[in-house]
Design a protein around this nucleic acid. Structure first.
Length: 413
RNA sequence: GUGGGCGUAGCUCAAUGGCGGAGCACUGGACUGUGGCUCCAGGGGUUGUGGGUUCGAGUCCCAUCGCCCACCCCA
């Protein structure tokens, strides 16, 4: 408690057994995403600040007040990535990946940084697992990405989630919708909460998911984005809904779901839970058909999502299980201790997991074996050295017996 | 950035303004070489930090830092 140093506000150490849960989530992601043909991409966690200004949008809260930005020794403005998509798109353009067979599909996992007040399910350094698929505009790709997300969430054992869907249109149809929204709210402006009055200027779409009761009431008859979609966006969305229906995916249409990041187009989706306090979204994503071009690449449709690992882990908290310890070698005496080391090393080389006892009486060593949850305790003392027969005990079943030193591995057959 | 709650042992928490404690956990012993149950013992603390009030502060006051929760926003 009174340690000389402490971790910074909003960042944390992830220790066993929590780290095992993180590994479990990541392992399942690698497996599921791999089966869909996605390959891992590792991008730097620092980028030129401009990258995020361009992609996320200068008026967004992330950019205006939540970025970890500093000047490096060369005088460059550097920012710790607040999200993953911008870097992947930069890499896609920088390495001319449009020249590779389409689609190009990537996943990433790692820390993101946002300077915010921490609360439940929200840290300043937090981990995301995300995917991005480039080059296909067809709604079938939207369906694939959503199916992949749902499969992963299912594989890690998450339940009671709901998938919310929306389409926020494209550069063609969204301006008209924003106009309609402004026209609708303008006469009611004085009745809106102060936050919404600000949103009216910065991002009127945000008024649609305000939590203030009065605002919810006022917006009851507000125009719906889905009524303003252009023909192409409309049919894209309809195709997606049809495909999800065919695939048996349950979803809820939420015309009030809005994205905080400027680059989204058409399909947006969120997977939410009621078990995380105010932080309901465990994963969120959508299309961003204009971003590659914005970054100087060829016009390339793309879609992706990101999951919040802390939020997934919080929902699975009880399921963190350390790996099984197969054996524990207790030894008595110097020569036996050396033999124990040789025995354990041989077993480990065969992929069998185990540990050595260090010092203390046989009793205290066995006590430790029990605490570790080891399957077998193996005992080496002077008697065993003389006879060449090891004593073993199955700590789960309580059975015990002897085995020749050279045949110890047969215990684990 | 705004608002509320909370900081005492590794953890969960007691202690009227008057000698800082318990349970769990950890280490060892009882049982010289056989875990879990039981009993005993031991190690562990500048009471988050810095000021102030007081004969005396874990307790009251101020500041600060941190944690938790909510808002903003978001994964």
């Amino acid at each position: 408690m009174s340690s000389r140093f402490a971790a910074l506000k909003g960042v944390e150490d992830i220790l066993p057994p929590d780290s095992y849960l993180r590994q479990f989530i990541e392992d399942k992601a690698r497996s599921v995403f791999g089966s869909y043909g996605f390959g891992e991409i590792k991008t730097p966690i620092i980028e030129h600040t401009d990258l995020f200004l361009r992609s996320i949008g200068e008026t967004s809260d992330i950019v205006s007040k939540e970025m970890y930005t500093f000047t490096d020794k060369g005088g460059r403005s550097i920012t710790l990535r607040p999200e993953g998509t911008a870097s992947v798109v930069r890499a896609y353009v920088e390495h001319s990946l449009a020249m590779r067979p389409s689609p190009q599909k990537f996943y990433y996992m790692g820390p993101m940084f946002r300077y915010e007040r921490p609360q439940k399910g929200r840290q300043r350094q937090f981990y995301q697992i995300g995917v991005e698929a480039f080059g296909v505009a067809e709604a079938r790709m939207d369906a694939e990405v959503i199916l992949m997300l749902m499969l992963h969430l299912d594989r890690i054992g998450l339940e009671d989630l709901s998938l919310e869907l929306n389409s926020i249109g494209c550069g063609e149809c969204r301006p008209a919708f924003k106009e309609a929204l402004r026209d609708f709210f303008a006469p009611k402006l004085p009745e809106l909460c102060p936050d919404c009055q600000r949103r009216f200027e910065t991002n009127p779409l945000r008024i649609l998911d305000c939590k203030v009761e009065r605002c919810i009431e006022i917006r009851k008859d507000a125009p719906l984005v889905t009524d303003y979609l252009c023909g192409n966006c409309r049919s894209h969305f309809d195709s997606l809904l049809k495909l999800l229906g065919v695939m048996g995916v349950k979803y809820t249409l939420n015309p009030h779901m809005v994205r905080g990041l400027d680059y989204y187009t058409r399909t947006t989706f969120e997977v939410t839970t009621e078990n995380l306090g105010a932080q309901k979204a465990v994963a969120a994503g959508g299309r961003y058909d204009g971003l590659v071009e914005e970054f100087g690449g060829p016009a390339t449709p793309a879609i992706g999502f990101a999951m919040g690992v802390e939020r997934l882990a919080a929902l699975l908290k009880d399921k963190a299980a350390p790996p099984i310890t197969d054996f524990f070698v207790a030894s008595l005496g110097e020569e036996a201790a050396t033999q124990a080391l040789k025995l354990a090393s041989g077993l480990r080389a065969e992929g069998i997991r185990g540990e050595l006892g260090y010092g203390g009486s046989l009793k205290s060593q066995l006590r430790k074996a029990g605490k570790l949850g080891a399957r077998f305790a193996i005992i080496i003392g002077e008697d065993e050295l003389k006879s060449g027969l090891l004593k073993w005990k199955d700590l789960k079943k309580g059975e015990s017996g002897e085995v020749p030193l050279a045949g110890a591995r047969k215990l684990f057959a």
